[in-house]
Amino acid sequence: MEALTGLDRLSALEEIALLKARRDRAADTKDWTLYEALHAPDHQSYNDDYGHWTSAAEMIRNVRRSMAGLTTAHHSHTPEITFETQTTASGIWAMKGLSVWRQGEESHWFLAFGHYYETYERRDGTWLFTSRRLRYLHTVRSPGAIFPPTIAPNPA
């Protein structure tokens, strides 16, 4: 099968860029319904902070709990998107992420720079995330900050 070319390629690039923008906004605004809708059910996540999650449902459950006490700002930019087929692609996005939280009586922060390595698939006419790996190149945190936050167990 021939990879995308011409206007079809440009259209798919824009759709994937919007997918990524929505993901960052959904994470920062804690819109978990939107966040989950952007991911294929069989999505695989590899996060250097937490390890490997094997489904979108598992990822959403853990991301939601790990970010419960955080205010975040995710910035993704300068994408490198490669189309393997007309319905599959991979991408690398440079990232900068800021997390701010209360730890006891003090405010703390964590700032990270790195890359997201992602795969996408067009299913039923919509591009979805099928995998993501976050790799940090550089991180810095406020003195005494404990990051990443512990993921609290599921409520009983």
Rank of each mutant, 00 (worst) to 15 (best):
V63L: 15
T54E: 10
G91V: 00
S55P: 14
H52T: 14
R64D: 07
K96P: 01
N62V: 04
Y50T: 04
T71F: 12
S55C: 08
A68D: 05
G91R: 05
W53R: 10
T82K: 01
D48N: 11
T87F: 06
E58N: 12
M67S: 10
I92R: 12
S76Q: 04
R64Q: 15
Q86C: 05
T71Y: 10
G97V: 15
F83N: 00
T71P: 02
G104N: 01
Q86I: 02
R61L: 14
S76R: 03
Q103P: 04
Q86N: 02
S99C: 11
H75P: 00
A68T: 07
E58G: 12
H75W: 15
D48Q: 14
A94V: 03
A68R: 11
T87I: 05
S76L: 05
D49W: 11
N62R: 13
E80S: 09
Y50L: 04
G91Y: 00
W101A: 02
S55T: 14
T72N: 07
E84A: 06
V100T: 10
F83Y: 03
T88G: 00
I60A: 08
A57F: 07
V63I: 13
T82H: 07
K96N: 14
M95D: 01
K96A: 14
A94K: 09
S66P: 03
Q86S: 13
R64E: 12
H74P: 03
G104L: 03
I60K: 12
A73D: 10
H75L: 15
N47T: 10
Y46R: 15
Q103M: 01
I92H: 03
P79V: 00
Q86K: 09
